[in-house]
Design a protein around this nucleic acid. Structure first.
Lengths: 199, 199
DNA sequence: AAATCACGCTAACAATTGTTAGCATTTTAT
DNA sequence: ATAAAATGCTAACAATTGTTAGCGTGATTT
């Protein structure tokens, strides 16, 4: 009987998806049941289906919204011909960190649970992820050609960057120790300039 | 009727756990059913219980074996007082990469699926992970004090290192592009000296 | 005021889950 | 050879899964 409370400017579907993202992060997609989700939304499981069409659809919305978000950003960054490769990399890194801090649940879920998508969506997501990494690799290779970046294997560098950023997950739990901006600066510095102190 | 083929020097339980690790990596712990596992082992689901006591136990064995492995290694590295901090960090990194290449399934599972442990084991694993990160952080802080490592936030550096290494997962799928040793050198170099070319 | 829509509920479904019981057969130890 | 242990099978269990059907109520539109 108690209706789902709708936040300002959001549909009830949005509320469900937000709660789902939280649960999917905590317990994983497969280990989260619709009754589980319903309880956190404050409603019976069957009632969810007035707003969404399936459990799978929830995961799809989370994953593709996030993926499009990152894809749009890199296109914007990459379109600017006045930026050096290092600057572009830094901007991409900072965007990832910011997204991780601001939309933690959804970014995390979309990164770890996309494997549970089913097939038209699964293949789509796989190629989108591949394309995204490829774009970053091209930026790095451009930087190598121009002498800004040392000649390392670009795909390896991309993997390191992206996975390093996803490590904020652990940071998120012990928030107090270090502020968001400090974290951002630390991460960018470590990745761009390394751990070793230069002579 | 067809018995589980036992590898030389391995029990049937080991075979089950190895197959389970593969499935847990591909589909996740929750999405892998005992019947699924049984089929890959070549046996009926009920027969598995002659060798293991529960699905949960399989995950426990995978996680704790791997965790002990890493813990032993860092203790060994850290005990040597003649190594610089940078050398210790490099050894830890190389060990992680090697483990990821040699025991891929189990290392991956233990890193991504430990959340599905249940409670005496879950708490245990959480504190073991915390302790491990803490030890690495201490090495980094030692390096900072001695002027080998630039003064960054040590816990952040640890997160970056560990998550960067776990990125080999993606690399693993496209094996051909780059050999194991080259990968190792690239990763260590990027993390220790950064992306930027020094003037 | 009447009709439509949005949205909640209960009850139920077929499928799948982890696991156990009981029995048959093969392997190992005595 | 015989007893014991190991290991497989089939059948079944209770619980949980995602989802649908059908109904009622309150809000919105006409």
């Amino acid at each position: 009987m108690a209706k789902i409370k709708r936040n300002r400017n959001g549909t009830r579907k949005d509320v469900i998806i937000a709660k789902a993202a939280k649960l999917f992060r905590e317990k994983g997609f497969s280990a989260t049941s619709m009754r589980d989700l319903a309880e956190h939304v404050g409603v019976e499981a069957a009632s969810l289906y007035n707003h969404i069409s399936s459990k799978a659809e929830i995961l799809q919305e989370i994953c593709f919204k996030t993926a499009n978000n990152f894809m749009s950003h890199i296109e914007e960054v990459d379109a600017n011909p006045n930026k050096t490769a290092i600057e572009k990399i830094q901007e991409i890194l900072r965007f990832h960190i910011k997204q991780m801090l601001d939309n933690y649940e959804e970014v995390y879920v979309s990164d770890r649970e996309w494997k549970h998508l089913t097939d038209p969506y699964l293949s789509n997501m796989q190629s989108q992820r591949r394309a995204y990494r490829q774009r970053i690799a091209l930026v790095i290779e451009e930087g190598i050609r121009k002498g800004e970046i040392k000649p390392i294997d670009a795909p390896t560098a991309v993997l390191i960057m992206l996975h390093a950023v996803s490590g904020i997950e652990s940071w998120h739990r012990s928030k107090k120790k270090i502020a968001g901006e400090v974290l951002e600066d630390n991460m960018v510095q470590i990745l761009v300039d390394g751990l070793r102190k230069q002579a």
